[in-house]
């Protein structure tokens, strides 16, 4: 067992526990976009930063990837942490202003201004979908491509992957695009519209090399057309 101190509360946790797990055990809220139980920690969104150490040695680390150490003092909501978090949220909001998850978080952390140009990226490269596809769905249909500002997530050669079973797991976990395709049921993360119309859109000719994940899903429009008729 390892003794740590989170926000002044002493706690003894098992070795190998992440700071995020320890803080959540005590009920301290730490926002995160790229962490999910059952998926390996990745540390991409940087929202879960906490401050560790004392005095001049104090530093910010991502709590989802850092493990507990004996005698570690952790502050999950110090002014430095909050300042960093707000900046990260502002940047995330600039890249994906249409994401409801990010908008909600931003308002929760009182991000009141938008100093950066909006990019409308549809993706914050958190890698949740990539890990979901690989670790839970055992498919490895999508992955990271390119480098730097050209880095993106998708299938090889932008065609429908043979490994993809259209499970929708990637859309389900996505914090940026999950409400993009909700048709009439916004409370459901994925509409399943493409699978529910007849014939299913994946069997239609024009969907041959397409997957809803990648391209603008037009299932809603097809259903609308059918309903109008």
């Amino acid at each position: 067992m390892v003794n740590i101190n989170i926000n002044g509360v002493n706690l003894s946790v098992e070795e190998g526990t992440t700071l995020l797990e320890a803080a959540q055990f005590l009920g301290f809220p730490i926002p995160t976009l790229c962490h999910m139980e059952g998926l390996s920690p990745y540390g991409a969104c940087r929202l879960c930063v906490v401050e560790i150490g004392e005095g001049p040695k104090a530093r910010l680390v991502t709590s989802c990837t850092s493990r507990v150490e004996e005698g570690l003092r952790i502050r999950t909501a110090s002014s430095r942490v909050m300042k960093a978090r707000k900046m990260i949220l502002e940047l995330l909001l600039a890249s994906c202003p249409q994401s409801k998850v990010i908008q909600d978080l931003a308002s929760k952390f009182e991000v009141r201004r938008q100093r950066f140009r909006q990019e409308h990226e549809d993706c914050i490269l958190c890698g949740l979908c990539v890990r979901m596809c690989e670790e839970q769905m055992m498919a490895k249909a999508i992955g990271f491509r390119g480098r730097g500002e050209k880095r993106s997530i998708g299938t090889p050669f932008d065609i429908r992957s043979e490994q993809c079973r259209l499970c929708g797991g990637c859309m389900y976990v996505c914090p940026a695009c999950q409400l993009r395709c909700t048709y009439t049921e916004p409370d459901k993360a994925i509409c399943g519209g493409c699978a529910n119309i007849y014939p299913p859109c994946v069997e239609k000719e024009q969907f041959d090399d397409m997957m809803c994940y990648m391209d603008p899903c037009v299932a809603c429009e097809i259903i609308k057309k059918i309903e109008i008729k």
Binding site: K140, G143, R145, T155, P156, Q163
Partner: peptide, 11 residues
């Protein structure tokens, strides 16, 4: 997996 190889090739 093809994804990994494609990732390296585009990187």
């Amino acid at each position: 997996s093809l994804v990994d190889i494609y990732g390296v090739a585009t990187f």
